[in-house]
């Protein structure tokens, strides 16, 4: 009880220092949240691109319809395959004409249909990385009815590299922001601790236990962490509301926002604990 009361009183008493600490946590977490939103959206784009990836398995000419049916079933059984759609030569030509309507005359001039029939294969979620697609494509290409398999290898390779770089960058930036936040919060709360050294000295003198001495500061730090993170979450939400008229972007789930608040409280906890420990182990009466 004493610790909670003193912690809250401490916030008011050290108005400016507390505000700085809250501001620092707010700013760190705002950066972190913005970074998180950007990451989410980049991954969203990558994921969308990946979900569009399909394998086209071109068939040899003149395959009897029952062996076609059997082949379709075999492909469906390959793990990772979501759906298999048969595209006949006529359908393929029709699609091509629709896509290339500006050169309609040229296509009309064709006497025979040059396009092969094919299977259009969509993949399950979780089978969108380059290696998995390659594996599936290889499995399909061994069937004797298959002439050729295509899946946009160049595009996929590039996408795969982007995902890898993004992932490493993500971890690095996340780590740097976390460490920097803890460091800055710890130093800011050290100011609070130093500004209350008289009170710590008297507590030690009259026989307060170490836990009793630390508790108010840690509660104060956690409260600062809570306030800072709440403000940053509100701000990021505000930015989202304002900018969604201009950009269409994916906003993190509510659990992520709650996570940010919890992260802020943990920052406050670690920062204040470090600060008060450093002070108590370094300073004598």
């Amino acid at each position: 009880m004493f610790a909670i009361r003193e912690g809250i009183i401490g916030l008011k008493r050290n108005g400016v220092v507390s505000l700085i600490a809250i501001g620092v946590i707010f700013f760190s977490l705002l950066l972190f949240s913005i970074f998180l939103v950007i990451t989410f959206n980049l991954f969203g784009v990558v994921k969308y691109a990946q979900s569009k990836v399909e394998i086209n398995a071109f068939l040899k000419d003149d395959i009897p319809s029952d062996s076609l049916k059997a082949l379709e079933e075999k492909i469906k059984k390959i793990s990772g395959v979501k759906s298999v759609q048969y595209v006949s030569r006529e359908d393929a030509l029709k699609e091509l004409k629709e896509e290339m309507s500006n050169v309609q005359e040229l296509l009309e001039a064709l006497e025979t249909n040059p396009l092969p029939s094919s299977f259009r294969i969509k993949l399950e979620e979780g089978y969108h990385s380059l290696k998995e697609i390659e594996d599936i494509a290889k499995k399909i290409s061994v069937f004797k009815e298959i002439e050729d398999v295509s899946y946009g290898k160049k595009f996929l390779t590039r996408l795969d590299t982007i995902v890898k770089i993004l992932f490493i960058f993500d971890i690095l930036v996340g780590l740097v922001i976390s460490i920097a936040s803890i460091f800055v919060v710890s130093n800011t709360i050290r100011l609070t601790v130093i500004s209350r050294k008289d009170s710590i000295e008297i507590m030690q003198l009259v026989g307060a236990t170490e836990r009793m001495i630390k508790a108010p500061f840690i509660i104060e730090g956690m409260t600062e962490g809570f306030l800072g993170s709440i403000i940053s979450v509100i701000t990021i939400y505000g930015i989202f509301i304002i900018t969604r008229r201009y950009f269409q972007f994916y906003f993190p789930h509510i659990y992520i926002l709650i996570g940010i608040v919890i992260f802020g409280i943990i920052l406050g906890f670690i920062g204040s604990r470090n600060a008060v420990n450093a002070y108590l182990s370094g300073g004598n009466l």
Binding site: F2, V206, A208, T209, M212
Partner: peptide, 8 residues
């Protein structure tokens, strides 16, 4: 009172 509060 502070001396008593901090010692519970």
């Amino acid at each position: 009172a502070f001396a008593l509060e901090v010692t519970g």
